[in-house]
Design a protein around this nucleic acid. Structure first.
Lengths: 158, 158
DNA sequence: ACGCGGAACTACACGGGTGTAAGACGTTAG
DNA sequence: CTAACGTCTTACACCCGTGTAGTTCCGCGT
């Protein structure tokens, strides 16, 4: 039955702006604002004039959700911007089970032991966000939002 | 020689608004704003009508500096407010070598191993701030700002 | 091929809330 | 008395969007 792979396995499908907003748990206007101000552009297809369509991929959804979580945690959008500018240039590795650590204007991706070292020796404020939780949130969002996948899930559950 | 105890030992002396601002590394305006909006009231003596004088104690200085560091880390003052409202009600223990961990609107004071557990099992964004660094910053601020203590330090150094 | 309905993006202006600074005002020391 | 200092009031600029109307494009029926 399952017409799709596991959620987080390199999915090739893309999402419209409206879908992406719903999945990430933000308003469409906010998504639009972030796209226009270069915070998160849709990777699959950017808008080019009125009437065109943005297409977000799975990784974009992760970023959107990370930003939402950071905002909810009370971090200013301005500093989130700096963090992501940095990350885009420096991070290529897979974002699966790592943890984002933000210290001032620099960002580190850690797993397990590394994390502990960083925290022990870190001075100043560190913002710590485990990405596994973010992925789960996004996957739940996809299931709850896209009708066909929801159907698949039901099939699996029964 | 040293006419005072060690910096962080229960010091009884108090500080004026201007002194407190300088030691914490913030503008006087900012200190004033925080006092008027109930973020950090001077414990030793609060303002009671125009022309009266605020007196801050050592612990107040620590709080001021923590807030400054959180702000510098890109956290919105609004959420810092919520955190401190909570902390005032729940935290009575000594703030010596612990670490503040902020998760959403709740705050935890940890030391060492505890910290590791919290971070491992934590969901969402965690803001981590070791207080030892804060205390050092404040003590340096006091030395650099109050003339007599600075003199003491010189005596010790020479 | 053509028109039409609706979804999606765009342009523009506005607004609540927040953090800060300037200056008016009061008080106290000397 | 008055100069120095500290507090209180008010105004302002900025952030982070949102409301709304307009525009473009897609898909579909005919």
């Amino acid at each position: 039955m399952a017409s799709r792979q596991n959620q987080s396995e390199s999915r090739a499908e893309t999402f419209s702006g409206t879908q992406a907003a719903r999945i990430a748990g933000i308003s469409y206007r906010r998504l639009d604002y972030w796209a226009r101000t270069d915070l998160v552009r849709p990777t699959a297809a950017d808008a080019q004039g009125s009437g065109s369509r943005r297409r977000y991929n799975y990784r974009d959804l992760l970023e959107l959700r990370v930003i939402k979580d950071l905002l909810d945690a009370g971090i200013r959008l301005e500093s989130i911007r700096r963090v992501f500018d940095y990350m885009r240039d420096h991070v290529t590795s897979d974002i699966s089970a790592a943890t984002i650590v933000i210290s001032g204007s620099s960002v580190i991706l850690c797993d397990g032991d590394e994390l502990f070292d960083v925290l022990r020796h870190g001075q100043g404020v560190l913002n710590v966000l485990p990405l596994s939780g973010v992925r789960d949130e996004v996957d739940r969002g996809i299931v709850a939002t896209t009708p066909d996948v929801a159907a698949d899930e039901k099939d699996l559950a029964v």
